[in-house]
Design a binder for these strands. Structure first.
Length: 276
DNA sequence: GCGGCCG
């Protein structure tokens, strides 16, 4: 029944090859939600299960969709009741439908996953009694997982996930960084990036190329071009204390690099000077 | 210890 991984399922361990990276549970009224961040050779995903006394339903969220789920739950938590609309979220080959419903038990949010050749699966999250406890609690779990998930970016495993790290950059910068999400208030914790990220020591190549420094107030941002056996990259790091605080690695595409520079300037994190 | 969803 572990159909999400497609092929290669017959590993002889008996427990499936998927590694659990993080598990959380949430009880809303009489439902129990399980959040499992898992990994298999095809990548990472978040399994969200709803368990009732007799029922269990599960949706599988691709790793890259976790922050989108967080955004959508923020929307449903923060919006007024009369301006809640259905939403769709397309991730790879899956489409997730978010629909509001209400009956005499209260309001609920139905999250359906539709994928090719797979039965539609749905979880239903109660709004909670009174103050949206259900949705807000659900959102908080998603936020925790979203935060924690970037700590699992191991230097040895980033073969095909450079694009996901770019998505992570969007989260770090916060409101307004992704065009079209202008009304999301930036959680203040997102702006103070205080989690230390281990440097990929094995990629510690002597900066074979350009290294530039931009000063903004007391902060210094280092732009280092480098390359290794996987290709060229730009490393942007902020060094205002003894450890590196923000680390972004962009691979190969000069257009991506230019894009990030433009975005940084448009957000006014960095005063426009003659660099970039 | 409910009740939505609907294969």
């Amino acid at each position: 029944m572990e159909g999400n991984s497609g092929g290669g399922g017959g590993s002889s361990g008996g427990g499936g090859a998927d590694v659990e990276l993080l598990c959380k549970t949430l009880q809303v009224e009489h439902k129990l939600f399980y959040f499992d961040l898992k990994e298999n050779p095809r990548g990472r995903y978040l399994k969200i299960s709803e368990k009732t006394s007799a029922t269990r339903s599960t949706i599988i969220v691709p790793f890259s969709g976790i922050s989108w789920f967080l955004d959508l739950f923020n929307y449903y938590v923060n919006s007024d009741e009369q301006e809640l609309f259905s939403k769709e979220l397309q991730l790879d080959t899956k489409v997730f439908y978010f629909d509001i419903g209400e009956n005499r038990r209260g309001r609920f949010l139905k999250v359906s996953e539709a994928s090719v050749s797979r039965n539609r699966s749905t979880i239903i999250v109660p709004a909670g009694s009174g103050r949206d406890e259900g949705w807000a609690a659900f959102r908080n779990i998603l936020a925790e997982i979203n935060e924690a998930s970037r700590l699992f970016l191991l230097p040895n495993q980033q073969n095909s996930e450079s694009s996901e790290r770019l998505v992570g950059l969007s989260d770090d910068v916060g409101a307004g960084f992704i065009s079209g999400h202008s009304t999301q208030p930036a959680p203040s914790s997102e702006l103070n990036v205080d989690r230390s990220v281990d440097l990929p020591a094995q990629d510690e190549i002597g900066n074979s190329g350009v290294s530039k420094v931009i000063r903004a107030d007391q902060k210094r941002f280092f732009f280092d071009l480098g390359n290794n056996n996987r290709g060229h990259y730009l490393r942007i790091s902020e060094g205002s204390s003894s450890f590196m605080r923000l680390l972004v690695t962009l691979w190969k595409s000069p257009r991506t690099v230019l894009r990030v520079c433009q975005l940084l300037m448009s957000v006014q994190l960095i005063p426009l000077k003659d660099e970039c």
